[in-house]
Design a binder for these strands. Structure first.
Lengths: 212, 212
DNA sequence: GTGCGATGTATCGGTCCGATACATCGCGGT
DNA sequence: ACCGCGATGTATCGGACCGATACATCGCAC
Protein backbone atom coordinates (compact mmCIF):
# COMPACT_ATOMS: atom_id res chain seq x y z
CA UNK A 1 0.00 0.00 0.00
CA UNK A 2 2.78 2.39 0.91
CA UNK A 3 4.51 1.58 -2.34
CA UNK A 4 1.41 2.52 -4.30
CA UNK A 5 0.94 5.74 -2.38
CA UNK A 6 4.54 6.85 -2.82
CA UNK A 7 4.52 6.08 -6.53
CA UNK A 8 1.28 7.99 -6.90
CA UNK A 9 2.52 11.05 -5.06
CA UNK A 10 5.85 11.20 -6.83
CA UNK A 11 3.95 11.23 -10.09
CA UNK A 12 2.73 14.68 -9.17
CA UNK A 13 6.10 16.10 -8.18
CA UNK A 14 9.55 15.04 -7.00
CA UNK A 15 9.84 15.10 -3.22
CA UNK A 16 12.05 14.14 -0.31
CA UNK A 17 10.97 11.90 2.55
CA UNK A 18 9.75 14.49 4.98
CA UNK A 19 7.69 16.23 2.33
CA UNK A 20 6.32 12.91 1.14
CA UNK A 21 5.11 12.15 4.61
CA UNK A 22 3.32 15.46 4.87
CA UNK A 23 1.61 15.05 1.53
CA UNK A 24 0.71 11.50 2.39
CA UNK A 25 -0.85 12.69 5.63
CA UNK A 26 -2.81 15.37 3.83
CA UNK A 27 -4.04 13.04 1.11
CA UNK A 28 -4.79 10.03 3.30
CA UNK A 29 -5.64 11.82 6.53
CA UNK A 30 -9.18 10.55 6.30
CA UNK A 31 -8.23 6.90 6.46
CA UNK A 32 -5.04 6.53 8.44
CA UNK A 33 -3.08 8.48 10.99
CA UNK A 34 0.36 9.37 9.72
CA UNK A 35 2.80 7.14 7.97
CA UNK A 36 5.79 6.22 10.10
CA UNK A 37 9.36 6.95 9.08
CA UNK A 38 10.12 3.43 10.10
CA UNK A 39 8.08 2.36 7.09
CA UNK A 40 8.75 5.26 4.77
CA UNK A 41 12.53 5.24 4.52
CA UNK A 42 12.95 1.50 4.09
CA UNK A 43 10.24 1.56 1.43
CA UNK A 44 11.96 4.39 -0.42
CA UNK A 45 15.12 2.33 -0.40
CA UNK A 46 13.27 -0.67 -1.70
CA UNK A 47 11.63 1.32 -4.49
CA UNK A 48 14.94 2.82 -5.48
CA UNK A 49 16.61 -0.61 -5.53
CA UNK A 50 13.80 -1.87 -7.75
CA UNK A 51 14.28 1.05 -10.11
CA UNK A 52 10.82 2.53 -9.67
CA UNK A 53 12.18 5.77 -8.24
CA UNK A 54 15.53 7.55 -8.47
CA UNK A 55 17.32 10.33 -6.68
CA UNK A 56 16.84 13.69 -8.28
CA UNK A 57 19.52 16.27 -7.77
CA UNK A 58 17.94 19.21 -6.09
CA UNK A 59 18.05 22.64 -7.75
CA UNK A 60 18.50 21.10 -11.19
CA UNK A 61 19.94 24.24 -12.76
CA UNK A 62 21.80 27.18 -11.25
CA UNK A 63 23.37 25.04 -8.63
CA UNK A 64 25.83 27.63 -7.38
CA UNK A 65 23.49 30.56 -7.28
CA UNK A 66 21.82 30.21 -3.95
CA UNK A 67 23.88 27.84 -1.83
CA UNK A 68 24.73 30.58 0.64
CA UNK A 69 21.10 31.51 1.07
CA UNK A 70 19.66 28.04 1.59
CA UNK A 71 22.35 25.42 1.49
CA UNK A 72 20.22 22.32 1.42
CA UNK A 73 22.52 19.45 2.08
CA UNK A 74 20.90 16.56 3.75
CA UNK A 75 17.75 16.26 1.74
CA UNK A 76 17.36 13.45 -0.69
CA UNK A 77 14.83 14.22 -3.37
CA UNK A 78 13.25 11.33 -5.23
CA UNK A 79 11.51 11.31 -8.57
CA UNK A 80 9.56 8.56 -10.25
CA UNK A 81 11.08 6.71 -13.22
CA UNK A 82 9.41 5.47 -16.38
CA UNK A 83 9.43 1.96 -14.93
CA UNK A 84 7.90 3.38 -11.79
CA UNK A 85 5.03 4.84 -13.77
CA UNK A 86 4.40 1.47 -15.34
CA UNK A 87 4.51 -0.15 -11.95
CA UNK A 88 2.03 2.38 -10.61
CA UNK A 89 -0.35 1.77 -13.50
CA UNK A 90 -0.14 -1.95 -12.88
CA UNK A 91 -0.71 -1.66 -9.14
CA UNK A 92 -3.59 0.77 -9.48
CA UNK A 93 -5.40 -1.39 -12.02
CA UNK A 94 -5.16 -4.81 -10.41
CA UNK A 95 -7.46 -5.36 -7.48
CA UNK A 96 -6.74 -8.14 -4.99
CA UNK A 97 -8.52 -8.77 -1.70
CA UNK A 98 -6.34 -6.20 0.05
CA UNK A 99 -7.75 -3.58 -2.29
CA UNK A 100 -11.02 -3.67 -0.40
CA UNK A 101 -9.91 -3.39 3.22
CA UNK A 102 -10.04 0.00 4.87
CA UNK A 103 -6.53 1.13 4.11
CA UNK A 104 -6.23 -0.45 0.71
CA UNK A 105 -9.49 0.98 -0.52
CA UNK A 106 -8.60 4.41 0.83
CA UNK A 107 -5.30 4.51 -1.01
CA UNK A 108 -6.85 3.32 -4.25
CA UNK A 109 -9.66 5.82 -3.91
CA UNK A 110 -7.24 8.66 -3.24
CA UNK A 111 -5.73 8.03 -6.67
CA UNK A 112 -8.97 7.57 -8.54
CA UNK A 113 -8.12 10.66 -10.57
CA UNK A 114 -5.40 8.53 -12.17
CA UNK A 115 -7.58 5.44 -12.53
CA UNK A 116 -9.74 4.57 -15.49
CA UNK A 117 -13.47 4.43 -15.00
CA UNK A 118 -13.90 0.68 -15.40
CA UNK A 119 -11.39 0.06 -12.62
CA UNK A 120 -12.99 2.70 -10.42
CA UNK A 121 -16.32 1.00 -10.80
CA UNK A 122 -14.88 -2.43 -10.08
CA UNK A 123 -13.17 -1.20 -6.92
CA UNK A 124 -16.21 0.66 -5.66
CA UNK A 125 -18.38 -2.39 -6.15
CA UNK A 126 -15.84 -4.67 -4.52
CA UNK A 127 -15.65 -2.37 -1.54
CA UNK A 128 -19.42 -2.24 -1.31
CA UNK A 129 -19.60 -6.01 -1.31
CA UNK A 130 -17.04 -6.23 1.47
CA UNK A 131 -18.81 -3.66 3.62
CA UNK A 132 -22.12 -5.39 3.04
CA UNK A 133 -20.60 -8.60 4.31
CA UNK A 134 -19.29 -6.87 7.40
CA UNK A 135 -22.72 -5.34 7.88
CA UNK A 136 -24.40 -8.73 7.69
CA UNK A 137 -21.94 -10.11 10.21
CA UNK A 138 -22.78 -7.32 12.62
CA UNK A 139 -26.50 -7.81 12.11
CA UNK A 140 -26.08 -11.50 12.84
CA UNK A 141 -24.27 -10.79 16.07
CA UNK A 142 -26.80 -8.17 17.11
CA UNK A 143 -29.64 -10.50 16.28
CA UNK A 144 -28.56 -13.94 17.26
CA UNK A 145 -25.86 -13.46 19.85
CA UNK A 146 -27.15 -10.34 21.55
CA UNK A 147 -27.91 -11.91 24.90
CA UNK A 148 -24.41 -13.32 25.14
CA UNK A 149 -22.82 -9.89 24.98
CA UNK A 150 -22.76 -7.03 27.46
CA UNK A 151 -24.31 -3.64 26.83
CA UNK A 152 -21.04 -1.92 25.88
CA UNK A 153 -20.10 -4.53 23.33
CA UNK A 154 -23.56 -4.28 21.83
CA UNK A 155 -23.28 -0.53 21.63
CA UNK A 156 -19.98 -0.93 19.80
CA UNK A 157 -21.63 -3.25 17.30
CA UNK A 158 -24.49 -0.83 16.78
CA UNK A 159 -22.10 2.00 16.11
CA UNK A 160 -20.18 -0.20 13.69
CA UNK A 161 -23.35 -1.26 11.95
CA UNK A 162 -24.39 2.34 11.56
CA UNK A 163 -21.03 3.18 10.00
CA UNK A 164 -21.40 0.26 7.58
CA UNK A 165 -24.84 1.30 6.46
CA UNK A 166 -23.62 4.82 5.96
CA UNK A 167 -20.65 3.73 3.92
CA UNK A 168 -22.78 1.51 1.71
CA UNK A 169 -25.03 4.46 0.96
CA UNK A 170 -21.99 6.59 0.19
CA UNK A 171 -20.66 3.94 -2.15
CA UNK A 172 -24.02 3.61 -3.88
CA UNK A 173 -23.95 7.31 -4.65
CA UNK A 174 -20.43 7.14 -5.97
CA UNK A 175 -21.27 4.11 -8.11
CA UNK A 176 -24.31 5.84 -9.54
CA UNK A 177 -22.17 8.87 -10.35
CA UNK A 178 -19.57 6.70 -12.03
CA UNK A 179 -22.16 4.95 -14.15
CA UNK A 180 -23.62 8.22 -15.28
CA UNK A 181 -20.15 9.35 -16.26
CA UNK A 182 -20.00 12.23 -13.89
CA UNK A 183 -17.14 13.19 -11.60
CA UNK A 184 -17.65 13.05 -7.87
CA UNK A 185 -19.28 15.90 -6.00
CA UNK A 186 -16.99 18.86 -6.80
CA UNK A 187 -18.90 21.11 -4.49
CA UNK A 188 -17.01 24.33 -5.19
CA UNK A 189 -18.57 25.89 -8.29
CA UNK A 190 -16.32 28.94 -8.23
CA UNK A 191 -12.86 27.54 -7.63
CA UNK A 192 -11.67 28.08 -11.17
CA UNK A 193 -8.76 30.23 -12.22
CA UNK A 194 -5.59 29.72 -14.14
CA UNK A 195 -4.65 26.85 -11.88
CA UNK A 196 -2.26 24.50 -13.57
CA UNK A 197 -1.88 20.78 -13.18
CA UNK A 198 -5.47 19.97 -12.66
CA UNK A 199 -5.10 16.42 -13.78
CA UNK A 200 -8.82 16.41 -14.18
CA UNK A 201 -10.70 13.15 -13.75
CA UNK A 202 -12.11 11.85 -17.02
CA UNK A 203 -15.23 13.90 -17.54
CA UNK A 204 -14.89 16.93 -15.33
CA UNK A 205 -18.61 17.45 -15.02
CA UNK A 206 -20.06 19.43 -12.23
CA UNK A 207 -22.10 17.56 -9.69
CA UNK A 208 -22.76 19.29 -6.47
CA UNK A 209 -23.89 17.46 -3.46
CA UNK A 210 -25.64 18.91 -0.50
CA UNK A 211 -24.13 17.90 2.76
CA UNK A 212 -26.06 18.18 6.03
CA UNK B 1 -3.84 -5.18 21.95
CA UNK B 2 -4.21 -8.86 21.13
CA UNK B 3 -2.84 -9.69 24.55
CA UNK B 4 -5.49 -7.58 26.23
CA UNK B 5 -8.26 -9.08 24.13
CA UNK B 6 -7.21 -12.67 24.80
CA UNK B 7 -6.88 -12.08 28.52
CA UNK B 8 -10.30 -10.46 28.55
CA UNK B 9 -11.99 -13.27 26.69
CA UNK B 10 -10.39 -16.05 28.71
CA UNK B 11 -11.73 -14.36 31.79
CA UNK B 12 -15.20 -15.33 30.63
CA UNK B 13 -14.42 -18.95 29.85
CA UNK B 14 -11.50 -21.26 28.98
CA UNK B 15 -11.08 -21.68 25.24
CA UNK B 16 -8.84 -23.07 22.56
CA UNK B 17 -7.35 -21.06 19.72
CA UNK B 18 -9.99 -21.58 17.09
CA UNK B 19 -12.78 -20.75 19.48
CA UNK B 20 -10.89 -17.70 20.73
CA UNK B 21 -10.66 -16.42 17.20
CA UNK B 22 -14.38 -16.81 16.65
CA UNK B 23 -15.27 -15.06 19.88
CA UNK B 24 -12.76 -12.34 19.10
CA UNK B 25 -14.35 -11.85 15.70
CA UNK B 26 -17.81 -11.65 17.22
CA UNK B 27 -16.78 -9.21 19.92
CA UNK B 28 -14.53 -7.00 17.82
CA UNK B 29 -16.23 -7.41 14.46
CA UNK B 30 -17.17 -3.76 14.48
CA UNK B 31 -13.62 -2.51 14.56
CA UNK B 32 -11.39 -5.02 12.82
CA UNK B 33 -11.72 -7.86 10.39
CA UNK B 34 -10.62 -11.16 11.86
CA UNK B 35 -7.56 -11.83 13.89
CA UNK B 36 -4.94 -13.84 12.05
CA UNK B 37 -3.66 -17.16 13.33
CA UNK B 38 -0.21 -15.86 12.54
CA UNK B 39 -0.72 -13.44 15.42
CA UNK B 40 -2.93 -15.54 17.63
CA UNK B 41 -0.84 -18.64 18.18
CA UNK B 42 2.46 -16.87 18.83
CA UNK B 43 0.68 -14.56 21.26
CA UNK B 44 -0.85 -17.52 23.11
CA UNK B 45 2.63 -18.95 23.41
CA UNK B 46 3.98 -15.67 24.72
CA UNK B 47 1.19 -15.34 27.27
CA UNK B 48 1.71 -18.88 28.44
CA UNK B 49 5.46 -18.34 28.79
CA UNK B 50 4.77 -15.22 30.84
CA UNK B 51 2.43 -17.16 33.08
CA UNK B 52 -0.69 -15.13 32.30
CA UNK B 53 -2.48 -18.15 30.84
CA UNK B 54 -2.12 -21.91 31.24
CA UNK B 55 -3.28 -25.04 29.48
CA UNK B 56 -6.46 -26.50 30.89
CA UNK B 57 -7.05 -30.18 30.45
CA UNK B 58 -10.20 -30.62 28.47
CA UNK B 59 -13.07 -32.67 29.90
CA UNK B 60 -11.93 -32.06 33.48
CA UNK B 61 -13.87 -34.94 34.96
CA UNK B 62 -15.22 -38.18 33.52
CA UNK B 63 -12.42 -38.48 31.05
CA UNK B 64 -13.20 -41.96 29.87
CA UNK B 65 -16.90 -41.59 29.46
CA UNK B 66 -17.23 -40.10 26.03
CA UNK B 67 -13.91 -40.53 24.23
CA UNK B 68 -15.50 -42.77 21.64
CA UNK B 69 -18.20 -40.25 20.90
CA UNK B 70 -16.03 -37.19 20.50
CA UNK B 71 -12.39 -37.96 20.98
CA UNK B 72 -10.97 -34.50 21.09
CA UNK B 73 -7.23 -34.85 20.79
CA UNK B 74 -5.57 -31.93 19.12
CA UNK B 75 -7.26 -29.11 20.89
CA UNK B 76 -5.33 -27.06 23.39
CA UNK B 77 -7.60 -25.30 25.82
CA UNK B 78 -6.24 -22.28 27.68
CA UNK B 79 -7.48 -20.69 30.87
CA UNK B 80 -6.42 -17.47 32.50
CA UNK B 81 -4.29 -17.59 35.67
CA UNK B 82 -4.47 -15.38 38.74
CA UNK B 83 -1.42 -13.48 37.46
CA UNK B 84 -3.21 -13.12 34.14
CA UNK B 85 -6.17 -11.50 35.81
CA UNK B 86 -3.86 -9.03 37.50
CA UNK B 87 -2.19 -8.34 34.20
CA UNK B 88 -5.56 -7.76 32.55
CA UNK B 89 -6.62 -5.33 35.27
CA UNK B 90 -3.37 -3.43 34.85
CA UNK B 91 -3.61 -3.28 31.05
CA UNK B 92 -7.24 -2.26 31.05
CA UNK B 93 -6.70 0.56 33.53
CA UNK B 94 -3.60 2.21 32.11
CA UNK B 95 -4.18 4.32 29.03
CA UNK B 96 -1.30 5.17 26.72
CA UNK B 97 -1.51 6.89 23.33
CA UNK B 98 -2.27 3.57 21.65
CA UNK B 99 -5.40 3.36 23.77
CA UNK B 100 -6.99 6.02 21.62
CA UNK B 101 -6.30 4.81 18.11
CA UNK B 102 -9.06 2.94 16.29
CA UNK B 103 -8.10 -0.58 17.26
CA UNK B 104 -6.89 0.20 20.76
CA UNK B 105 -10.00 2.13 21.65
CA UNK B 106 -12.22 -0.57 20.23
CA UNK B 107 -10.62 -3.28 22.32
CA UNK B 108 -10.75 -1.21 25.48
CA UNK B 109 -14.36 -0.31 24.81
CA UNK B 110 -15.30 -3.93 24.21
CA UNK B 111 -14.23 -4.69 27.76
CA UNK B 112 -15.81 -1.67 29.40
CA UNK B 113 -18.06 -4.02 31.35
CA UNK B 114 -14.91 -5.01 33.24
CA UNK B 115 -13.60 -1.45 33.56
CA UNK B 116 -14.32 0.96 36.39
CA UNK B 117 -16.24 4.09 35.62
CA UNK B 118 -13.40 6.56 36.15
CA UNK B 119 -11.28 4.72 33.60
CA UNK B 120 -14.17 4.47 31.17
CA UNK B 121 -14.64 8.20 31.36
CA UNK B 122 -10.95 8.88 30.92
CA UNK B 123 -10.76 6.66 27.85
CA UNK B 124 -13.91 8.09 26.25
CA UNK B 125 -12.60 11.62 26.71
CA UNK B 126 -9.18 10.72 25.39
CA UNK B 127 -10.74 9.16 22.34
CA UNK B 128 -12.94 12.18 21.80
CA UNK B 129 -9.92 14.45 21.94
CA UNK B 130 -8.09 12.36 19.40
CA UNK B 131 -11.03 12.29 17.00
CA UNK B 132 -11.50 16.01 17.39
CA UNK B 133 -7.90 16.51 16.38
CA UNK B 134 -8.35 14.34 13.33
CA UNK B 135 -11.50 16.28 12.52
CA UNK B 136 -9.64 19.58 12.71
CA UNK B 137 -6.94 18.24 10.46
CA UNK B 138 -9.52 17.26 7.87
CA UNK B 139 -11.23 20.63 8.11
CA UNK B 140 -7.91 22.32 7.58
CA UNK B 141 -7.22 20.31 4.47
CA UNK B 142 -10.72 20.86 3.11
CA UNK B 143 -10.46 24.55 3.82
CA UNK B 144 -6.91 25.56 3.06
CA UNK B 145 -5.59 22.91 0.68
CA UNK B 146 -8.74 22.14 -1.24
CA UNK B 147 -7.58 23.55 -4.56
CA UNK B 148 -4.45 21.39 -4.48
CA UNK B 149 -6.45 18.17 -4.36
CA UNK B 150 -8.57 16.41 -6.94
CA UNK B 151 -12.29 15.80 -6.60
CA UNK B 152 -11.95 12.18 -5.45
CA UNK B 153 -9.48 12.98 -2.72
CA UNK B 154 -11.72 15.76 -1.51
CA UNK B 155 -14.70 13.44 -1.44
CA UNK B 156 -12.67 11.03 0.66
CA UNK B 157 -11.86 13.79 3.13
CA UNK B 158 -15.49 14.82 3.32
CA UNK B 159 -16.56 11.28 4.07
CA UNK B 160 -13.87 11.02 6.72
CA UNK B 161 -14.87 14.34 8.23
CA UNK B 162 -18.46 13.20 8.38
CA UNK B 163 -17.42 10.00 10.17
CA UNK B 164 -15.39 12.05 12.67
CA UNK B 165 -18.27 14.36 13.48
CA UNK B 166 -20.54 11.40 13.92
CA UNK B 167 -18.14 9.64 16.25
CA UNK B 168 -17.65 12.75 18.35
CA UNK B 169 -21.40 12.97 18.80
CA UNK B 170 -21.56 9.31 19.71
CA UNK B 171 -18.80 9.79 22.27
CA UNK B 172 -20.54 12.82 23.73
CA UNK B 173 -23.61 10.72 24.34
CA UNK B 174 -21.62 7.96 25.96
CA UNK B 175 -19.77 10.43 28.15
CA UNK B 176 -23.01 12.04 29.25
CA UNK B 177 -24.39 8.61 30.09
CA UNK B 178 -21.30 7.73 32.07
CA UNK B 179 -21.46 10.91 34.06
CA UNK B 180 -25.08 10.29 34.91
CA UNK B 181 -24.19 6.78 36.00
CA UNK B 182 -26.37 5.04 33.48
CA UNK B 183 -25.57 2.14 31.22
CA UNK B 184 -24.86 2.88 27.57
CA UNK B 185 -27.55 4.14 25.23
CA UNK B 186 -29.97 1.33 24.44
CA UNK B 187 -31.47 3.62 21.85
CA UNK B 188 -34.45 1.62 20.61
CA UNK B 189 -37.51 3.01 22.37
CA UNK B 190 -39.98 0.93 20.43
CA UNK B 191 -38.24 -2.36 20.10
CA UNK B 192 -40.57 -5.23 20.76
CA UNK B 193 -41.21 -6.00 24.35
CA UNK B 194 -39.54 -4.86 27.51
CA UNK B 195 -36.22 -6.56 27.02
CA UNK B 196 -34.17 -4.50 29.45
CA UNK B 197 -31.34 -6.93 29.87
CA UNK B 198 -29.07 -4.19 30.86
CA UNK B 199 -26.19 -6.11 32.25
CA UNK B 200 -25.65 -2.96 34.21
CA UNK B 201 -21.92 -2.38 34.13
CA UNK B 202 -21.21 0.30 36.77
CA UNK B 203 -21.88 -2.06 39.65
CA UNK B 204 -19.55 -4.87 38.67
CA UNK B 205 -22.42 -7.18 38.06
CA UNK B 206 -21.97 -10.71 36.98
CA UNK B 207 -21.36 -11.03 33.31
CA UNK B 208 -23.11 -14.30 33.07
CA UNK B 209 -22.46 -16.26 30.02
CA UNK B 210 -23.66 -19.57 28.84
CA UNK B 211 -21.49 -21.80 26.74
CA UNK B 212 -22.92 -24.85 25.00
C1' DG C 1 24.72 34.01 21.57
C1' DT C 2 21.62 30.91 22.83
C1' DG C 3 17.89 28.08 23.25
C1' DC C 4 14.06 25.93 20.69
C1' DG C 5 10.77 24.30 17.44
C1' DA C 6 10.54 22.87 12.68
C1' DT C 7 12.91 20.33 9.28
C1' DG C 8 15.29 16.31 7.87
C1' DT C 9 17.37 11.30 7.55
C1' DA C 10 17.90 6.93 9.54
C1' DT C 11 17.66 2.35 12.40
C1' DC C 12 15.81 -1.21 15.56
C1' DG C 13 12.68 -4.23 17.91
C1' DG C 14 8.24 -5.73 17.97
C1' DT C 15 3.34 -6.57 16.48
C1' DC C 16 0.42 -8.27 13.28
C1' DC C 17 -1.03 -10.08 8.69
C1' DG C 18 -1.49 -13.32 4.64
C1' DA C 19 -0.20 -17.46 2.69
C1' DT C 20 0.61 -21.93 3.47
C1' DA C 21 0.82 -26.60 5.33
C1' DC C 22 -1.16 -30.40 7.48
C1' DA C 23 -4.42 -33.43 10.16
C1' DT C 24 -9.12 -34.87 11.76
C1' DC C 25 -14.25 -34.98 12.00
C1' DG C 26 -18.94 -35.50 10.50
C1' DC C 27 -21.77 -35.52 6.70
C1' DG C 28 -24.02 -36.59 2.34
C1' DG C 29 -23.74 -38.89 -2.05
C1' DT C 30 -23.15 -42.97 -4.84
C1' DA D 1 -18.61 -49.31 1.86
C1' DC D 2 -16.15 -45.75 0.12
C1' DC D 3 -15.04 -41.05 -1.02
C1' DG D 4 -14.90 -36.32 -1.12
C1' DC D 5 -15.60 -31.97 1.16
C1' DG D 6 -16.38 -28.32 4.23
C1' DA D 7 -15.74 -27.20 9.04
C1' DT D 8 -12.60 -27.64 12.73
C1' DG D 9 -8.10 -27.32 14.53
C1' DT D 10 -2.84 -26.19 15.26
C1' DA D 11 1.20 -24.23 13.50
C1' DT D 12 5.09 -21.53 10.90
C1' DC D 13 7.31 -18.07 7.87
C1' DG D 14 8.29 -13.85 5.43
C1' DG D 15 7.03 -9.35 5.07
C1' DA D 16 4.62 -4.83 6.08
C1' DC D 17 4.18 -1.38 9.19
C1' DC D 18 4.62 1.08 13.70
C1' DG D 19 6.74 3.50 17.79
C1' DA D 20 10.71 4.87 19.97
C1' DT D 21 14.90 6.70 19.41
C1' DA D 22 19.02 9.06 17.76
C1' DC D 23 21.20 12.71 15.56
C1' DA D 24 22.06 16.95 12.76
C1' DT D 25 20.79 21.57 10.78
C1' DC D 26 17.98 25.86 10.05
C1' DG D 27 15.69 30.06 11.19
C1' DC D 28 13.99 32.84 14.63
C1' DA D 29 13.03 35.07 19.02
C1' DC D 30 14.79 36.57 23.38
Amino acid sequence: MLELAILGLLQEAPMHGYELRKELTAKLGAIRAAISYGSLYPTLRRLQAAGWIAEASETPATVEEVPALTSRRGRVVYKITAEGKERFAQLIAQAGPETYDDTGFGVHFAFFARTDQATRLRILEGRRRKIEERREGLRDVLGRAAERLDAYTLELQRHGLDACEREVRWLEELIANERSGRAPTVPQPGTAGGRRDNDSPPPPGETRKERP
